[in-house]
Design a protein around this nucleic acid. Structure first.
Lengths: 215, 215
DNA sequence: TAATAAATGGGGGTTTTCCCCTAGCCTATA
DNA sequence: TATAGGCTAGGGGAAAACCCCCATTTATTA
């Protein structure tokens, strides 16, 4: 019997998965979490074999949860689930100890297969995810270190500037808001461009939103 | 017996809803669609009592489907489902004939209630959605017509330009790619700024991504 | 403590974006 | 057959963004 904890903020989704798993005699759902914060307390009490973990969770996101879990409860196998087939998500959560990654558009059969595979200690990725990873690897090989798609740390001040850029403020407005000189903001802008590997403001905003770089 | 067609591109989600509904004796799922294009052909053949319709569908989005459905098959009651509690989505799909709107984070009980309510010809909105609409109404009253946040249609050419802007291309590059003059691209940019109510490129990109304006 | 990173800001430049105007041509549709 | 909207494109100018260069001060951390 495989015991499972489901963590996803969409109730309907959780109910759905539970309904699917109910028909399986060798799988049992022992808990549900609707945000990131309640996962660790639950696992402290009951240790499930598998955590079905949504990557985008309110409270504390799936990647952080996975990281903590991996160091404190390595026995729990994490199967990540996400709406998005984004290379950055996949890579990051795998680097933090997830054993598998499937998309929310995979069907019942594949879900069961993924659970059983991960439970046996192996890793499982859906086809689409595998393709994404492969593409990513190929790109990073091509470009050397140009677009390994991980970003250097963005400093506190840079983040503030970035936030205001995304909110459509001009450099002058940002300078006024932060009580610093135009030149300083320009300097932050330019390091943001270089850190995020963007060509212009459009890229800055796109990369920021696509990678949820702001709180 | 209420017959239901589920339209959502996430297989797992569709399976989930189906599992939930399977236990109900007076509800029957008679079909599944995984994109917007296959909905109308299906309905032409078999007319379900209710269409559970995801707002964000590939191929043809929920709003368009709803519009067409409303004129061709008004007997089919549409219950919209969405991840997002976005005022713009809610208002727009309701204006196009949906009878109800629930979020994907609503549970099994509420789903069943929503289905039965909509089937009886009444409308159903989850609490969160109701709140959003009320807030929206209050805001639109406050600001007059400033940010009712609806976007006029973006034309085919504008979409192409927008896509290339988001991909970090400059106006000159876009002109070269589309084999049109710099001035024409500038003219498209400017109508995009005005249509999307953006102040600059940053806003253009943010609004585009936040509202998934591109395929 | 010495090296590193962050935050600040200046000079001086080019490129890009944004804004105002105008205007012809085409197509769908009321 | 008008009227509207979409696509095209020009002139000319102001504002903003982007690109080098550089320097000082202040934290942080190895």
């Amino acid at each position: 019997m495989i015991s499972i904890l489901i963590a996803d903020d969409h109730t309907m989704f959780v109910d759905g998965i539970e309904s699917i798993l109910k028909t399986e005699s060798d799988v049992q759902v022992i808990g549900r979490c609707y945000d990131g914060l309640s996962i660790l307390p639950f696992i402290k009490e009951k240790q499930p074999d598998i955590l079905l973990l949504d990557v985008n969770l309110p409270g504390k996101n799936g990647i952080e949860v996975c990281k903590e879990l991996n160091s404190k409860y390595p026995a729990v196998n994490v199967l990540a689930i996400s709406m998005f087939n984004e290379e950055s998500y996949v890579t990051e959560i795998l680097n933090n100890g997830a054993k598998g990654y499937i998309l929310k558009n995979t069907g019942r059969e594949e879900l069961l297969l993924a659970i059983k595979t991960v439970n046996s200690g192996k890793t499982y990725f859906s086809k689409e995810v595998t393709n994404t990873i492969m593409k990513g690897l190929m790109n990073s090989r091509k470009n050397g270190s140009k677009k390994t798609s991980f970003f250097p740390k963005i400093s506190r001040r840079e983040k503030e500037v970035l936030q205001l850029i995304v909110e459509e403020h001009t450099t002058q407005e940002i300078a006024d808001k932060l009580f610093i000189s135009l030149k300083t903001v320009e300097s932050h802008r330019s390091s943001l461009l270089s850190k995020l590997n963007a060509r212009n403001t459009a890229g800055l905003v796109r990369i920021t939103l696509e990678n949820k770089l702001l709180d």
